[in-house]
């Protein structure tokens, strides 16, 4: 990937991280850790992969994206805003009763959200249904869904994985945000879903394993996924929970808690410094 393109994407992801952090800080609640870990994946998807038109969020031929790990809503909202679906300043209304940005995604409130999610394990099934719909109709749009690594402990994920492979849904790409942490500890301590890639291979999926913060690898992975015929693809993306804010990185305590004013100021300072470096 060209350096200028990479810097541009990294800068957009940093802007999204700043907005997501602000939303969680103002709401005094939310899920910063899993939003920050997913934001390079989300940014790459919304900037480079998805065939979408922010002016026509309900366009019938659009690619679909389902945030199966719905608690990363601040990350999704920020990526949508950066892509132009609504102003980035809307993130300041996160989790307010009358805001279109609810605690977890709602497909009717937020332009660009294709499925209401939040209860883990359910988004991937809806994504499978969408992929099936495209197959039935002979449509060429594709479906992408982002799962948490803790989320794949849900049995429904594997019901969906089995069905998607059985029906040869090669228009479906799942991404696992493998940040290694869930609420009660590391995913190994809690109920290890490892080895993730081998499990999906056994379920009949094409598996690609990458660093979920590396834009070169993201580019290669999504390009490879688009060439796979006859089976769905999963991209297992190694990520850092809380990516971009030093004290949040790899710290499970930031799964579902908001920074105080001081912590928020430090986070903003760090992300702003990153942004200045990128935009030089």
């Amino acid at each position: 990937m060209e350096l200028t393109k990479k810097s541009r994407l990294q800068a957009l992801a940093t802007r999204a991280r700043l907005a997501a952090l602000e939303g969680v800080w103002r709401a005094k609640s939310g899920h910063p850790g899993g939003s920050l870990s997913a934001l390079d994946i989300l940014t790459y998807l919304y900037q480079e992969v998805l065939r979408i038109d922010p002016a026509k969020p309900d366009w019938e031929k659009r690619d679909r994206f389902v945030l199966s790990k719905g608690h990363a809503a601040p990350g999704l909202y920020a990526a949508l805003a950066v892509r132009g679906y609504f102003p980035l300043s809307d993130l300041a209304t996160l989790r307010h009763p009358d805001s279109h940005l609810q605690g977890h995604p709602n497909m009717h409130y937020t332009p660009g959200v294709d499925m209401s999610t939040g209860s883990l394990g359910q988004g991937i099934s809806a994504a499978v249904g969408m992929a099936l719909a495209a197959k039935i109709g002979g449509d060429d749009w594709k479906v992408y869904t982002l799962l948490g690594d803790g989320e794949i402990e849900e049995g429904q994920v594997w019901e969906a994985a089995m069905f998607a492979a059985a029906k040869k849904l090669d228009n479906l790409v799942a991404i696992v945000d493998n940040n290694n942490l869930q609420i009660d500890g590391t995913i190994v301590e809690v109920n290890s879903p490892y080895p993730i890639g081998e499990k999906f291979t056994a379920f009949g999926w094409h598996v690609i394993e990458i660093d979920g913060h590396c834009y070169d690898q993201l580019e290669q992975a999504f390009a490879e996924a688009s060439t796979i015929a006859g089976q769905p693809t999963v991209i297992v993306a190694k990520t850092v929970k809380g990516k971009g804010v030093s004290f949040m990185e790899n710290n499970v305590n930031w799964h579902g808690s908001a920074p105080n004013d001081e912590q928020y100021a430090q986070g903003v300072a760090e992300l702003t410094s990153t942004l200045n470096e990128l935009e030089g």
Partner: peptide, 20 residues
């Protein structure tokens, strides 16, 4: 969907979003 009612419901939801 096979013996997988949770996924059955989710697939139904996904299909309906596409106008079926």
């Amino acid at each position: 969907a096979g013996i997988a009612e949770a996924n059955l419901v989710g697939i139904a939801a996904g299909l309906s979003t596409a106008g079926y």
